[in-house]
Design a protein around this nucleic acid. Sequence first.
DNA 1: TAGATTGTTAATCGATTAACAATC
DNA 2: TAGATTGTTAATCGATTAACAATC
Lengths: 206, 206
Amino acid sequence: MGNPTIPDIVIGRLPIYLRALQRMDQSGQQVTSSHELGEMLGISPPQIRKDLSLFGEFGKQGTGYHVQFLASQLQSILHLNQVWDIAIVGAGDVGHALARYQGFRDRGFQVKMIFDNDQNKIGRKIGEFTIQDIAEMAEKIQEAGIRVAMLAVPAAFAQPVTDALVKAGVKAILNYAPIQISAPPDVKVQYIDPALHLQRMSYYLK
Amino acid sequence: MGNPTIPDIVIGRLPIYLRALQRMDQSGQQVTSSHELGEMLGISPPQIRKDLSLFGEFGKQGTGYHVQFLASQLQSILHLNQVWDIAIVGAGDVGHALARYQGFRDRGFQVKMIFDNDQNKIGRKIGEFTIQDIAEMAEKIQEAGIRVAMLAVPAAFAQPVTDALVKAGVKAILNYAPIQISAPPDVKVQYIDPALHLQRMSYYLK
DNA sequence: TAGATTGTTAATCGATTAACAATC
DNA sequence: TAGATTGTTAATCGATTAACAATC
């Protein structure tokens, strides 16, 4: 069970730590330290130690952290001991790229279905998936018990599709549509909008 | 010129304000308030007023903000009065989706070229763009004076490609590779890793 | 052991918010 | 005018960091 007093900003750093640890593990490294992790990630060592200490004592004084052990602890904290099924809504370029992206499986997620409302797309295949009719979305998601969705529809559809996903029992939505959506407090929403990142950087461009 | 004392966290919110204002403008709305914007974005009204006041006085007491005026001020602050040319590195699924994404143009950016190191891809077209050899990347970017790049290569190539981009004069990199990259302080880097967002949400899933 | 690094407290730093005078 | 909303100060809140005892 998650401790409800952990700040969300700390939760946001855990996957970053995990990603670094998994890279270390893949390269055969067995031990690391808050200093090394901090160097690698641009995060201060005490910050890392403090974050981790909110969940337990994972290190050894004088030695540091055992890479595999810490990684598995973080996976457990983040509920990544299981593979979460994902539904993709929207089979345009973004939905297409997400459906084919190979990087989810190793990191606790697995695309299971993809929906669109375009009759020309429905029935066509993307890799192993057949694009399904969005009219059947709620039913299919409920049947499969899917809790995680990625939203790759035009901005105008984002809110109605969100409402349908919430009704179907989805609790986590990664929204690629360039618009704020509203959902009940028990439904987490994260946003990806590349233009937002670019605009943030262009402030610093002369 | 940007005021160097503005916190980066404030800069990060300006594009969010701008996006909301542009939607209002498109729907014909002429005036808004910090309260309405805050409601829409989940940001407190005083926060919005304080952020904006760091750059000037853009509102009218009793009335609020003129949507078009505030939007144009934000565009100017963010250096979005011009269109920034972008180079994409990596012509896989992600690079492909980015090259075809229609959402950049209205928001101050324009894809100009795309590179890959795969001989089977070089010379093929994505929309209007011909995939170019990454061996010619530095030269082409320098010639065109491109300052902004999007990185959509495998993690193992992210750092060497970054080094090449920096040498070629790129000052802003949006990195889709799931790995931290290092660049000089005058080169801004932003990250997009969907798995990171998913993992952050799965903490809250039971 | 000596050196290194954790976990944690206290201090600092920075960001957010409450409150309100100014004024449209 | 009366009502509404800004811009801004002061207070609060929360996050980061410095420092160090504990200990491997």
